[in-house]
Design a protein around this nucleic acid. Structure first.
Lengths: 207, 207
DNA sequence: AATCGCACATGACAGATGTCATCACCAACT
DNA sequence: AGTTGGTGATGACATCTGTCATGTGCGATT
């Protein structure tokens, strides 16, 4: 008869305190999982990981101070024994691609059934991957991010409602240059205008 | 010695399945609280409430089919014995105002510490209110929603990146009329342009 | 009856946006 | 050396946006 193995030790990172506590409570109901740390941002998570050496990190993407994607890359580099599961609201192929590039082994959406979280933790602990097949296919189909870094910076600001002149001053460019970049981004994304382009880019995870 | 009272019976409504399960797990760790139902949208919640007659409903705002605000008003009208706690991501004074108008007894933000959820459930069960004082003050200071219904409909679309002509066709108005409405909304909100106006209105909970 | 606010409209005009052509510089690649 | 792509620029022009004036109709209020 095989020996009873110890529990899977998990750290959870999530900037909304109540969701953080709730996710920890959810995982703690599993007999084979133990939550050994909670973090409210990426920086706290790194500190906790260095101290606790968990088997798995479950992290959101959009957090202050350090995004979950940056955190995943740091964990891959500094703590390769800790496997990372991204848990996010956003079904964005660009986010998925960047998550996998950053070394994440799982990418789970918050709108999935609750039981899938523990199952994902078990699977990545065993060395398997957990990615929604539909989202993976969409990431494949949508191709790579067509925006250059400058276009992204400018489009982001335009999507926030900033005028071309305002963006130009902020980035120390001429207004004509900003308009050229915006026009290029609008064309690449097949959008009607700058706001539409920003919306499309966000939906794809490119912004 | 006072008699041990029964547990507070709670239903949770939240469209993200994993967060729903996690919140239920969190509440179930409290010895004096029992989760007697979970719902993925407002309609399911109403059905569950009719059947279970819970003491408290904890609900998100942005859900498909029926928002938490509409749900709260329905619960006030049809099940006055069930007290409502709104649990949301958005610190928007307009949402708070509408929540209280709809009969909610609590308005809690998801970025608060996890322990506050159970405490809020206990307090509203006792007939007390739970509202963040800073948010209440902000709701008071920002005054009522200055937008007319038509302005709101048009501003929402403009904020999505739609052109004036497109909005005009969609709402069967002339383009000039749409521009007039937009100009009025921009002016009322002290915004620089339509995107800025939509952002401000969203932050206030008016959109 | 008079007034007010909202909904809806037309028209004129100034400023912003988006497109397009054209150009220079630089780093990376063939 | 030649090519490619990114960055940055100017200028011209068509279209869109936002403002403003002015107007009508309707329901609610005074």
């Amino acid at each position: 008869m095989r020996e009873v193995t110890s529990k899977i030790r998990v750290i959870v990172a999530e900037d909304q305190g109540m969701v953080l506590g709730a996710l920890a409570a959810l995982l703690e109901t599993e007999p084979d999982i133990a939550v050994c740390g909670k973090a409210a941002n990426g920086r706290e998570a790194l500190t906790a990981i260095a101290k606790q050496k968990p088997d798995v990190l479950v992290t959101d993407i959009e957090m202050p101070e350090m995004t979950g994607l940056t955190l995943a890359a740091e964990v891959r580099d500094r703590h390769p024994q800790t496997r990372v599961v991204i848990l996010t609201t956003f079904a964005r192929p660009g986010y998925l691609r960047r998550a996998l590039d950053a070394g994440a082994k799982g990418y789970l959406l918050k709108d999935r059934p609750a039981a899938e979280l523990a199952e994902a933790v078990r699977r990545v602990h065993r060395g398997l991957r957990v990615v929604d097949p539909d989202l993976a296919a969409e990431a494949w189909d949508s191709g790579p991010d067509p925006l250059t870094e400058r276009e992204r910076q400018i489009l982001w600001r335009a999507g926030e409602g900033k005028a071309s002149l305002e963006i130009a001053e902020e980035l120390r460019l001429s207004e004509g240059t900003v308009r050229n970049y915006l026009s290029e981004a609008i064309s690449k994304l097949g959008a009607a205008n700058r706001v539409d382009a920003a919306r499309i880019a966000r939906a794809k995870g490119w912004l």
